Simulated scan of single mutants.
Amino acid sequence: MRDAVIVGAVRTPLGRRNGVLSTIHPADLSAQVLTGLAARTGIDPAEIDDVVWGCVSQAGEQTSDIARTAALAAGWPDTVTGVTVDRQCGSSQQAVHFAAAGLIAGQYDVVVAGGVESMSRVPMGSSSGGADPFGDSFLARYGVAPSQGVGAEMVVDRWSLTRTQCDDFALESHAKAAAAQDSGLFEEQILPVVLADGTKVDQDEGIRRGGTRESLAALKPAFAENGVITAGNSSQISDGSAAMLMTTSENAARLGLTPIARVHTAVLAGADPVIMLTAPIPATTKALTRSGLSLSDIGAFEVNEAFASVPLAWLADIGADPALLNPHGGAIALGHPLGGSGARLMTTLIHHMRATGTRYGMQTMCEGGGQANATILELI
């Protein structure tokens, strides 16, 4: 039987909005990741059948199928195709799912899955151009145009979360990310980005040190007058990219590549699109059921920190060990470059699994429209 294995996983450092990576065109940022992935794995790009690339704001510099543009900008042969995927924040996790399905079905032998978002250069919401993306029928059914920030406050209310809980979660995310950065745990997964002036950027820019409950408590609520969600306990607007080289076990042996992890289970779940952010909970349950694994089999979880309320609600319902959740911090500390985040989380998870000998790891993330992907990886 054909399987889908990951033989290489790299990411850029994540840059703050208008920060160190904001001078790079997103196609060129993607190209650097693709070039670095090929160099690290030793793959001949001519062997690659397709580049499946997540990107959410497909406007301006991120239009015209940035996946194909990135492959050509990387100097890869004209024969390497590319397709751009939008499942909102889960776009590059969905790219992995599509790539895995193509490998198992025999449509691919070697494929790259990943994504990019330059939120400095293509601001969130640019793809709508100010137009209404919902239409009369949707609004007649749900009565409101969904907002992620409002959804995050709805999660707070439904799960009775407090400002202190959300702020403490944010402080812990920064502390874990800082510890990982200081101990060199990100070095193997990060591909340094070279700027136009030759500067090499090799560290995540968003990690903040020395934060306190008092400093976070001083921030005003971002989405409701007496709300809980602030800039401090939400994900950072960021620039970044990540990519994985995927193939089958058989082709890995033929090409002399060493598999790191196998895509064990890949599922989707949908939930209320107005609250929007709760689907990781049913996605997790569905993944466990379909995999035949129990919660105790999973040694590490990556749940995207779109807002602190999302993983806190997930923890409350799923009952996972908090110590296994986002062991090196998450999007609150590192950043959330929308179309690249799924692949960034998976890259971080894969390297953590390999470093710790963790057999099974799970990733899930909330997505626009009230959706979620969930993926279980098995260490090889």
Rank of each mutant, 00 (worst) to 15 (best):
G8Y: 00
V10K: 05
P13W: 02
L14E: 09
R17T: 05
R17D: 01
R17Q: 13
N18T: 11
G19P: 07
S22F: 08
A27G: 08
L29I: 13
L29T: 07
L29Q: 05
A31L: 12
V33I: 15
L34I: 13
G42M: 05
G42P: 03
P45W: 10
V52S: 10
W53I: 09
W53P: 04
Q58W: 11
Q58Y: 12
Q62E: 14
S64A: 15
D65S: 14
A67L: 09
A74H: 04
D78Y: 15
V80C: 13
T81V: 14
G82Q: 10
D86S: 14
C89Q: 04
S92H: 05
Q94T: 13
A99Q: 11
L103Q: 06
V110K: 04
V112N: 04
V116H: 01
G125R: 10
S127K: 14
D132W: 06
P133Y: 00
F134K: 14
G135A: 05
F138E: 05
S147N: 15
S147C: 15
Q148V: 13
G149M: 08
R158T: 15
W159I: 12
T162M: 13
Q165I: 06
D168Y: 01
A170T: 09
S173L: 06
A175M: 10
A175H: 13
K176W: 08
G184P: 05
L185C: 09
I190T: 12
L191H: 12
L191G: 01
V193Q: 01
V193H: 00
A196V: 03
Q203W: 04
E205T: 02
G210L: 07
R213K: 14
E214Q: 15
E214S: 15
E214C: 13
A218V: 08
A222N: 08
G227T: 13
G227S: 13
G227M: 10
I229L: 11
T230I: 12
S234G: 14
S238L: 13
M246K: 13
T247G: 10
E250L: 14
R254G: 08
G256I: 07
T258G: 09
T258W: 08
R262G: 05
A269K: 00
D272F: 08
P282T: 06
T284S: 10
T285G: 01
K286V: 00
T289I: 01
L293A: 08
G299H: 03
E302Y: 03
V303K: 01
L312S: 02
L312G: 03
D317F: 04
I318F: 03
I318M: 06
I318S: 03
G319K: 06
G319C: 07
D321L: 07
P322V: 02
P322R: 09
L324T: 11
L324D: 05
L325S: 07
L325N: 05
P337Y: 00
M346V: 12
I350C: 05
T356Y: 00
M362H: 12
Q363R: 12
M365F: 07
G369S: 01
Q371T: 01
A372N: 01
T375K: 00
